[in-house]
Design a protein around this nucleic acid. Sequence first.
RNA 1: GCAGGGUUAGUGAAGUGGUCAAACACAACAGACUGUAAAUCUGUCGGCAUACGCCUUCGAAAGUUCGAAUCUUUCACCCUGCA
Length: 291
Amino acid sequence: MATPPLIVVVGPTASGKTALAIDLAKRFGGEIICADSRTVYKGMDIGTAKPSAADRAAVPHWGLDLVEPGERFTAADFQRYATAKIAEIRERGNVPFLVGGTGLYVDGVVFAYQFGPEADATARALLESMSLEELINYCVDSNINVPENKNNKRYVIRAIEQKTVNEKRSSEPIHGAIIVGIATERNELRTRIESRSEQLFQDGMVEEATMLGKKYDWDSEAMTGNIYRLVHEYLLGKITLEEVKRKFAVRDWQLAKRQLTWLRRNPHIRWLDREQAAAFLSERLENWHES
RNA sequence: GCAGGGUUAGUGAAGUGGUCAAACACAACAGACUGUAAAUCUGUCGGCAUACGCCUUCGAAAGUUCGAAUCUUUCACCCUGCA
């Protein structure tokens, strides 16, 4: 039998990627790798809509609960992890599914990004202490290309660390990848996001965030995920619970739009609605089984 | 009924005679983004125009003025104090 394909399912938050992938993985012997920058954190379950215990029992899931909130986990870490997992899953004769909304994580794997050198902690601290203007001047003096958004301090710092703006990647998806985007009608997506906002709180969002806040630092990158920072404000008494829910739906919508902007640049995505995507991938997987 | 305060662009909110299509914030829309990416950053944001610019706005109407979101009068609605 030929090497199993890599099924890549992308789309904005709340588009139904996970449900689709679980369904297909059950039927075709798949294992799911979550390409999600928040579900890698332990304890962040409700706020990140992490797959349930039942889902995980039904289909093997990877990429969840890899680190504690506050620990460092990067796109390069994910790339290493996911690439290894894809190989392992294939060795077992199963079908790897790469599913997620973190575009950088997906593309890092799919387009085999060659990441630049890792940041040196002391050098990074020094760079962060500098003003944006100083950083730009440094770039000019050192002949380093400034990123398009030169007001984006993070990017300028990274350019300095890499001594350039890094764009090393493959122009084609890695071999065997089938990339499907879940196309969702705008109003429908909005409705889904709003009802999910309500659901999270019924499921114990505040309790989860309170617990995490006690255990970890509110300021850590993990905890800046749009829901946790809002619950933090609520716990501080700055906003009401109703405002949290409303603002979360807004933040989630903004996230979805940013995700779509990222995905739009990728010409290799086959955009299909949930049903079409299920049918299309089923057919591909059946053909693969027969080959 | 009397006295006082208010009514500004999708929302909140500055502005109290010219430099006001009107600060700022939020939302919205578009975009960038290779080791923090649910992050971070950029542009647009009354209408028309690629643009010079033109047009219509600051509760309504009528005035004062060379000139009004800003001053006057009346009306409408809202809030507060006295009745």
